[in-house]
Amino acid sequence: MISLWDTTGNEVVKALAAERRSAGGVASGMALTLIVVVGEKRVREAEAAATIAAAAHPCRLLVVVRSDIDRKVSRLDAEVVVGGRLGPCEAVVMRTSGRLALHAESVVMPLLVPDVPVVTWWHGEPPEQIANDYLGVVADRRITDSAQAPNPVQALLQRAVDYASGDTDLAWTRITPWRTLVAGAFDTTDAQITGATVTAPRADPTAALMISWLAARLGITPRWEETSAFPRMRSVELRCANGDGLSLVREDSSAMFTRTGQPERQMPLVRRPLGEELAEELRRLDADQVYSEALGTLAGLPDLSARPAKRVHIWKDPAKATEPAVGGDPAVVAAGPARSGS
């Protein structure tokens, strides 16, 4: 491990090269570059999750910690770790402050692994417009977490407005076990579904996506039954045209599956650590069309999957947030997910 205080981007690149030589082949065969954007207070959470994900997907991990953007003097502190506490990967933790925090790409870009996909994950409130963040513009896949926003469901709607092919959200990842169990219920029935009810708190983004997914796949209008007795989605109930009913009710780390005329069955429904959720999203680097369909249904915006993956960087200074973006500004830079022509 090499620690660099009040350093420069060039020194970070040299330190990483030195650590790679010392470690030998510890982190060879990297499949992607994972950029993590996080605030100082949540660095440990992000590092722990990224370590789990990196164990499943060999990568170069670049953790960008943005803080104190109002500081008059810019500063960069970095920690370079190869095959150490952050798992079997090449990792660089960069703490940026002052105006440098708004231009972290100047340090990150030279550290990208050539000819492999780039994934950017924001561990914190998602950006209102990803095009304002160059670290999102250069990525092939972009992972947000609407649950971190003050109004999670409203944040999901903003994700739909701002959607580009390759975007995803961890609120969607969290309902993968639910979707698996619901889809599995159709293995033993061909009855048409005529209605559904999802019981969840009103601010639960997973419930919003679950309802939208059911609506998009089944052509129905599910009902959201609000509850304040549980912190997250409690149950999903389906009604069939033949009068049968199917239900999944969460009980700690399992779900009770009930179907008319059949005995109850207990199914696994474990709440996974953040690192496993992140690892799931790194398994696929193409656009998730099922997610875009559900998100579009939620927001009433069809054909989200038809949107291009390429974004144009729009510079936005937080100190001038009230000023509209100028399309002809020389700081508006065309960029896309492909540094290798994809």
Rank of each mutant, 00 (worst) to 15 (best):
G300C: 05
E281A: 05
L298W: 02
P324W: 13
D303H: 13
A319F: 03
S292P: 12
K320T: 10
P302F: 00
K310W: 01
H313G: 03
A287E: 12
E323R: 13
K316V: 10
Y291R: 04
K320M: 11
R284P: 00
D317N: 13
H313F: 15
T322V: 09
P324Y: 10
L298E: 03
E293Q: 14
E281Y: 01
R284A: 14
P302A: 03
L285Q: 01
Q289R: 15
L278M: 11
R307K: 14
A309M: 02
P318V: 05
V290M: 11
Y291V: 04
E280P: 00
A309V: 01
G300E: 08
T322S: 14
L278P: 03
L295C: 12
W315K: 04
R307Q: 11
D303K: 05
L285M: 07
R311G: 02
L301W: 00
L295G: 11
P318R: 02
L285K: 04
A279G: 08
E281R: 06
A306W: 07
Y291N: 04
R311P: 00
I314R: 05
L295M: 12
K316E: 13
Q289P: 00
P308R: 08
E281G: 08
D317K: 01
L298T: 10
W315D: 10
H313W: 10
A299N: 08
A294L: 11
D317T: 05
W315G: 06
V290S: 12
A321T: 06
E281T: 12
H313C: 03
V290F: 00
P318F: 05
S305N: 06
L285W: 04
A325D: 12
S292L: 05
P324K: 11
A299M: 13
L282K: 05
L304W: 02
T297D: 03
E280S: 11
Q289Y: 15
H313N: 06
R311A: 06
P308W: 04
